[in-house]
């Protein structure tokens, strides 16, 4: 079963990608990704650039609304995601707890929606 792991980080954590904390930041992620690969559960995933470079688009009553910045105005912002192949939600939770984002941000787990063939 496939689960998407959505990683949310605080502003300070986004900053740690480039400031004097960057060695620890990238070291933790490199190691975590190595562990996912070693376990043979990685289907895919990407890190995302910070929310400051996000743009949102919506159509309301046929009118376009384009805004700078991320959709949700929350303390933690989406920072990246993984798609993992795992036997159960329990396993997904275990990997979520090991994720660096769980230590000072939030990790959300969602099962992938499986479409039945038409």
């Amino acid at each position: 079963m496939q689960y998407v792991m959505l990683n949310y980080e605080k502003t300070e954590t986004f900053a740690a990608r480039t400031n004097d904390q960057q060695e620890a930041y990238w070291g933790a992620w490199t190691a975590y990704i190595a562990a996912l690969n070693e376990a043979g559960i990685m289907v895919g995933g990407q890190g995302l650039q910070p929310p400051t470079v996000a743009t949102t688009v919506r159509l309301a009553d046929g009118k376009r609304h384009v805004q700078d910045g991320p959709y949700a105005d929350t303390k933690e912002q989406l920072a990246g995601f993984f798609i993992l192949e795992l036997p159960s939600l329990d396993d997904a939770m275990q990997w979520a707890a090991r994720c660096p984002a769980a230590s000072d941000g939030v990790v959300e787990i969602r099962p992938v929606l499986v479409m039945s063939p038409p």
Binding site: T30, I33, A35, E38, R98, A102
Partner: peptide
């Protein structure tokens, strides 16, 4: 080391 770091939950 990568695996030991990647598998821990404790920051």
């Amino acid at each position: 080391f990568d695996l030991a770091i990647g598998l821990t939950e404790d920051s």
